[in-house]
Design a protein around this nucleic acid. Structure first.
Length: 595
RNA sequence: CGGGGCGUGGCGCAGUUUGGUAGCGCACAUGGUUUGGGACCAUGGGGUCGGAGGUUCAAAUCCUCUCGCCCCGACCA
């Protein structure tokens, strides 16, 4: 490809509506253009990078026995009604006005429909079906370029199995394929335990790239490899030193509502307060009180998981009505029976606590959890950096991360509701056991840019770079330079190298700046050294190190560097083995350096 | 959905408080001088100020409604 007359528009200035590095650079380097919130055009450069990533994905999916297919984006709403997700996912669905169709945000329904039509026997199982296709989700708040879009390209695959063992096997194969994919894309990532959320099912893991541009928080242990999304992560709290409380008493605490205020007033540690929070489980509008150690925070996601229902904080009027006191003065003691009381395990059962008295301006102290009505105890707490790892006791770290892939064991949720059955060896009809697995292709590009970009622009891993090599021909009006550049360009092309020729009649500075911005891994500069029979070869990641190479040797040199760059990445991928992570369910996999 | 900000040539912005009929930088075109890290000079083209309605002799500027984009939060396979 030649730069002259090509659509690769670069910008000197940062676009005003971009916030994070990858978004700014994708626009400045001419990879994408926005059409609407969360909806982007891929310009030639951006699309080339996407295709590189897609190619890798395709190779690895095929390698584990995946069969590529393509399902329609236009789905009859009726199919979605069968699983109830036309309602459950209503908020993110794009529906077609006046036609009973929707734009698919995922394809479990369609897969199940194909399965129930085509699969009859256990002999036809297991299956891995995948596609790489555009998804539509009405994200309430698209942001950060390709990191959260309303229309985006996803690789989604689905496994259909006859037994749990088969599911485990195919799930593990996906985990392996994903690690190879992300490693081959040059990413640094961690595999973490995750919440199954709306998808349902028995287990899931996310593939996370540590980056400040992310929207998730991941807790991980550098010693044993434990890693989990903070939505589900557990940790061990340091015990606190309780103050002595003699007897049970009610104390007058006028206008003191917060844990800080009350603990100070009562002269007890914050941790000794029993924080009581009233929520409403929205599936049946029932009130739930959560008890948590005063210095800790409720993790709403964990509560949602436990209740298997969306939740909301109770309105102030509801608190008053159900407990007879305003928020700030509520507690489990003497709470009405219809309120479900859940205690976070962070508070020790035999240490007397202070909490609201369910009476305005009063708190009570001296009760212990063992003598309080508690319906259940569980983990409902947000963990904090520095807490001890539940597996090895090492202090945990918490990092912001980008989710680039997610794998789920779905079970039979969809096959049951849609009647996707098979006959087992004994002749009985059973629902197919399913799994589903997603990769956000655009997020691979964003993550790579976030990881490696420098002040001058993008630094692509060679495997997903739009081009492997750029020839910067300075002063293209000089016949000798033009001749050498063209010769090298054609030679590299004929050798199968993915090369871009900057043949514009621009000044040197413009071309260098653009080359840096584009981030193509290897650059050949054809300029004044041509008179001495040489060209200059540099790596984008190390532009200070310039190599003067004889023109005749240039192609060989470039191929050598190219091979080296590929080897750096591919050798990491070769080291990956299926289930090397057996010891722990979670593994830290870093492609290059430590994060 | 709650809170905040912003919509002015292709891009980045000023002008809005105190209404008087649109300006700067970059980009673009032409000519010239330059030519290894986003050149310089000259000339020139392009916008009616997100949209609709209103107030006024007069609206980018004031009022009402509306659309869009961005940020924080909520939400999120």
């Amino acid at each position: 490809m030649r730069v002259n007359k090509s659509l690769i528009p670069t910008l000197k200035e940062e676009p005003s509506d971009a916030e994070v590095t990858s978004h700014k650079l994708m626009i400045r380097a001419g990879l994408i253009r926005q059409l609407s919130a969360g909806i982007y055009t891929f310009l030639p450069f951006g699309w080339r990078a996407m295709l590189k990533a897609i190619n890798i994905i395709r190779q690895e999916m095929n390698a584990i026995g995946g069969q590529e297919l393509l399902m329609p984006s236009l789905n009859p709403t009726e199919l979605w009604h069968e699983t109830g997700r036309d309602q459950d996912m209503k908020d993110i669905l794009f529906s077609i006005k006046d036609r009973d169709f929707l734009l698919a945000p995922t394809h479990e329904e369609i897969i199940s429909d194909i399965a129930r039509r085509e699969i009859r026997s256990f002999r036809e199982l297991p299956q891995i079906w995948y596609q790489i296709q555009t998804k539509f989700r009405y994200e309430p708040r698209p942001r950060f370029g390709l990191l959260r879009c309303r229309e985006f390209i996803m690789k989604d695959s689905y496994t259909l199995c006859a037994t749990q063992e088969q599911l485990d096997k195919l799930y593990n194969l996906h985990e392996y394929a994903y690690r190879r994919i992300f490693t081959r894309c040059g990413l640094k990532y961690i595999v973490v335990g995750a919440s199954s959320g709306m998808m349902g099912g028995s287990g899931s893991q996310e593939f996370m790239v540590p980056s400040e541009a992310g929207e998730d928080r991941t807790a991980f242990c550098e010693k044993c490899g434990y890693a989990a999304n903070t939505e589900i992560a557990q940790g061990i709290l340091e015990p606190f030193e309780p103050a002595e409380i003699t007897g049970k008493k009610k104390v007058y605490t006028p206008n003191l509502r917060t844990v800080e205020e009350v603990s100070e007033f009562l002269k007890i540690p914050r941790a000794q307060m029993l924080k009581s929070l009233l929520y409403v489980a929205e599936k049946d509008d029932s009130p739930v009180m959560i008890l948590i150690r005063g210095d800790q925070q409720l993790n709403e996601e964990k509560l949602v998981q436990y209740l298997k229902s969306p939740i909301r904080p109770a309105h102030p009027e509801e608190v008053q009505q159900w407990l007879g006191a305003p928020a700030g003065f509520i507690g489990p003691v003497n709470a009405p029976d219809n309120i479900k009381i859940l205690a976070d395990k962070s508070y020790p059962v035999n240490v007397p606590f202070a909490t609201g008295a369910n009476e305005k301006d009063y708190h009570i102290m001296g009760y212990t959890l063992s003598e309080t009505k508690v319906d259940d105890t569980g983990d409902f707490r947000i963990i904090n950096e520095g807490e001890k790892c539940v597996e090895c006791g090492n202090p945990l770290k918490v990092r912001v991360t980008i989710e680039i892939g997610h794998i789920f064991k779905l079970g039979t949720k969809y096959s049951e509701s849609m009647g996707a059955l098979f006959q087992d060896s004994e002749g009985t009809q059973k629902p197919i056991i399913m799994g589903s697995y997603g990769i956000g292709v655009g997020r691979i590009l964003s993550s790579a840019i976030e990881l490696y970009a420098d002040d001058s622009g993008i630094v692509w891993p060679i495997t997903i770079a739009p081009f492997e090599v750029i020839i910067t021909a300075l002063d293209i009006t000089n016949d000798k330079i033009k001749e050498v550049a063209e010769k090298l360009y054609n030679k590299l092309l004929s050798e199968g190298v993915d090369v871009l020729l900057d043949d514009r009649d621009e000044r040197a500075g413009v071309k260098f700046k653009d080359a840096d911005l584009w981030g193509i891994p290897i650059r050949i500069t054809v300029g004044k050294l041509t008179a001495e029979g040489k060209v200059e070869v540099v790596l984008r990641r190390d532009t200070a190190n310039r190599m003067a190479v004889d023109i005749e040797m240039a192609v060989a040199k470039v191929k050598e560097l190219r091979l080296m760059l590929y080897n750096e990445i591919e050798s990491s991928a070769k080291k990956l083995k299926e289930k090397t992570y057996q010891k722990s369910r979670f593994a830290l996999i870093y492609h290059r350096n430590d994060c």
